[in-house]
Computed example of a mutant assay.
Amino acid sequence: MDFVTRSLAWLLPMHEYKNIVYPYFITRENLEAMPNFQMRDDDIVIASYPKTGTNWVLEIITKILQAAGKSEATSEERAFAKLEFHHPELPQTTHLMLEDSPSPRVILTHLCPDLAPPGIANPEGNVKVIVVMRNPKDAAVSNYHFGLNIMRNYFYFGHILAYFLTWDRFCNVFLSGEAVFGNFYNHVLSWWQKRHDPHFLFLKYEDMQKNLTDAVKTVAEFLEMDLDDATVKHIAKDCTFHNMKKVFENSDFKHRTFMARKGMVGDWTNYFSPEQSQAFDAMYREKLEGTGLEFEFE
């Protein structure tokens, strides 16, 4: 990590826990509480690396539960549910708030299985875990822009800090595995090992973009919600990127107002130099070859 990037990291309130860098709103105390978090039999979990479609899937699940008559809660009401977080807008850490939340709970996490609660890493009973994934190049670009918005909206000198965090610097950090929330490949592969466990469903951002109706149907079936085709199509229409962006922009939670940017596959081509793309391709082959996990990039 170059000198300027290290300086930016020093200026921003971050910390390291078990060799992974976390932002200030994920405290060591929260992370240490994860082994004791108690699951319920009807919990639904979304596990993901940041900026890979977490809130998109949350919107889909929310509307499925509403349509099935299982819950009236909105995605706005569930937006705080990132398990390891303590949102600046809220008085209490998420894992404590979830203890008093009505069922069915929809729990979000960006943790790897070895740091997540045992009931998520190795679920039992009727617990459902949906793992959302996205190609690493688009994930890197989306994380870059979200990081800039976090700086600009939450820190006094944020606009100055954002000026120095160039794409080239961020790209190098992401490729090195030193980005916030850790190494992308370590994260996705740690969850991918669970693919044969029937408690898990794996969704790819690119497949959702290609056929959202099929994705909604797949999620509904996984959650054992009996919805007719008309309802599935209606949910898919409500959950298009254009409609979700309007929902996010009107959120009471500041971070959700800039959650959605372009929502496209292949935006990385507007940022990556040929050399950066080649470096990512080499890492992609090294880490994923032979694992059965593949991504589409355009």
Rank of each mutant, 00 (worst) to 15 (best):
F184S: 07
P113A: 01
P117R: 00
M264E: 12
F202I: 10
M34E: 09
Y156A: 15
F297P: 14
L11C: 06
A236C: 04
D238H: 00
T52S: 15
V232L: 05
K262L: 11
S71Q: 07
R78A: 03
G290D: 04
E99K: 15
A68M: 04
S101P: 00
V57W: 02
M283S: 12
Y24M: 11
V21C: 14
T213V: 08
P13L: 15
Y154S: 08
I160F: 07
H145T: 02
Y271G: 02
L58Q: 03
M264T: 06
V232K: 09
F241N: 01
F202K: 03
I130M: 12
R78I: 01
L12T: 03
Y185V: 05
C239K: 11
K82D: 07
D281Q: 13
D226W: 03
W191S: 08
I160D: 08
V45T: 05
L12S: 10
M39A: 07
G147W: 06
A81I: 14
K137D: 02
S48E: 09
T27W: 08
R40G: 05
N19V: 06
N55E: 01
G69C: 11
E275K: 15
L201S: 15
D226P: 15
V173A: 14
F295W: 10
V219E: 12
F222I: 08
N243P: 04
K262W: 03
H95N: 12
G266R: 06
K210P: 00
H199D: 11
D252H: 01
Q66S: 06
E89Y: 05
L165H: 10
K210N: 08
Q276G: 14
N250I: 02
T218R: 09
L223D: 01
P118A: 00
R256Y: 02
N55A: 07
D100N: 12
N250H: 02
S48K: 09
E224R: 13
N250E: 01
L83C: 10
I60R: 12
Y49H: 13
M14L: 10
E124I: 06
S103Y: 05
F295S: 03
A116P: 08
E296G: 04
F248Q: 00
